[in-house]
């Protein structure tokens, strides 16, 4: 993956202009990938339990919308206390919605993909309800800083993502949460017989995912200083799932790698930025994503590996399906 990356990189050499702050494509990539990293971190834990959270994109939009709405109605939009209240409000709302997901999955026992689909659909509507279908534009320096501010010459967003990554890492690896999540995802029945209360852990993980999505929502809206209930965080859940899978966490659950996820998110953002820089429509990066998804999944698929090994020992390498897929790309 890194190799793929470096192949792309020479096209827009890492320019590092100094203007009081550092600028340049690599910095941009880091800054732009911050929301994705956040969402993907939460998604990693959800996937590690063998679940999936489709609602994160909608949650981004909701949290961003609540924060922006609060700021836009406040008298002093630049006061830190206004911004903090806004963040707290939005964060709290996201936690409630995360708890809703957790309730459906852990307590009622609905399949994760279906349970979170509900909020994925309804959440978009809620976000638009909050913004009343408008794009709420705000002019608040402290809020704007979340997305565009600088700290120690680097964009603040990078530090937020980094802090979140460290926090999640500490939260999972300094406590036994990580172990228990991996255990539940790796073998639910064995975990039950070892006395693990998996319901609580699963519930917690969905709340955590919502929290991460909320912060990502702040960044996305702060970046453009406006909240668009329709577009904010659109399809970020798919990118996040992709980042998690690229990062080496199996969709079947079990072992997870936060570092891998961060790397995966960076790769995806690099891909998007590269395509953008090459003056191709940003949507075309989807083509590459499709190829990456299939390739990564095939590599992870035991069935594929078994077949590949057998074929290779037979004669011709390369199974049919991926080749055909790849041939279609240039078409």
């Amino acid at each position: 993956m890194i190799a793929v990356n470096t192949v792309y990189r020479p096209g827009f050499l890492s320019i590092e202009v100094n203007d009081g702050h550092l600028y340049g494509t690599p910095i941009d990539i880091l800054r732009l990938s911050a929301p994705l990293i956040l969402v993907a971190l939460g998604m990693t834990l959800v996937i590690a339990t063998g679940g999936i959270d489709l609602s994160v994109g909608s949650l981004c939009a909701i949290s961003g919308a609540i924060a922006c709405l609060h700021i836009s109605t406040a008298t002093d939009r630049n006061s830190p206390s206004t911004v903090l209240t806004a963040l707290a409000l939005a964060f709290g709302a996201a936690l409630v919605l995360g708890a809703w997901n957790g309730l459906l999955v852990a307590v009622i026992g609905i399949q994760p993909i279906i349970a979170t689909l509900i909020l994925m659909v309804a959440g978009r509507g809620l976000a638009q309800l909050i913004t009343e279908g408008q794009i709420i534009t705000i002019n608040s320096a402290p809020y704007r800083a979340i997305g565009l501010g600088h700290f120690l010459t680097l964009p603040l967003a990078i530090f937020i993502a980094l802090a979140a990554a460290l926090l999640v890492a500490a939260f999972t690896r300094r406590t036994a949460l990580g172990l228990i999540v991996e255990s539940v995802g790796g073998n639910a029945e064995a975990s039950r017989l070892a006395g693990i209360r998996s319901g609580r852990v699963v519930f917690l993980v969905y709340v955590l995912s919502a929290a991460c999505a909320a912060v990502a929502g702040f960044m996305i809206t702060a970046n453009v200083s406006s909240a668009d209930g329709n577009a904010a965080g659109l399809w970020i859940e798919l990118d996040a799932i992709l980042a998690v899978v690229i990062g080496g966490t199996s969709l079947a659950g079990g072992r997870f790698s936060l570092g891998g996820t961060v790397l995966g998110a960076l790769i995806i953002q690099t891909l998007t930025t590269t395509v953008y820089a090459m003056n191709i429509s940003p949507q075309t990066s989807l083509l590459f994503k499709a190829v990456v998804v299939i390739a990564v999944c095939l590599i992870q698929s035991p069935a594929f590996r078994a077949k590949f090994r057998r074929r290779r020992s037979d004669r011709t390498p390369g199974p049919a399906a991926p080749q055909r897929k790849k041939e279609q790309v240039p078409a």
């Binding site: 429509s281 949507q283 075309t284 989807l286 083509l287 590459f288 994503k289 499709a290 299939i294």
Partner: peptide
């Protein structure tokens, strides 16, 4: 992946 692929073809 199919969704990405088809959408990519569109653009």
């Amino acid at each position: 992946a199919g969704m990405f692929f088809a959408r990519g073809i569109c653009t």
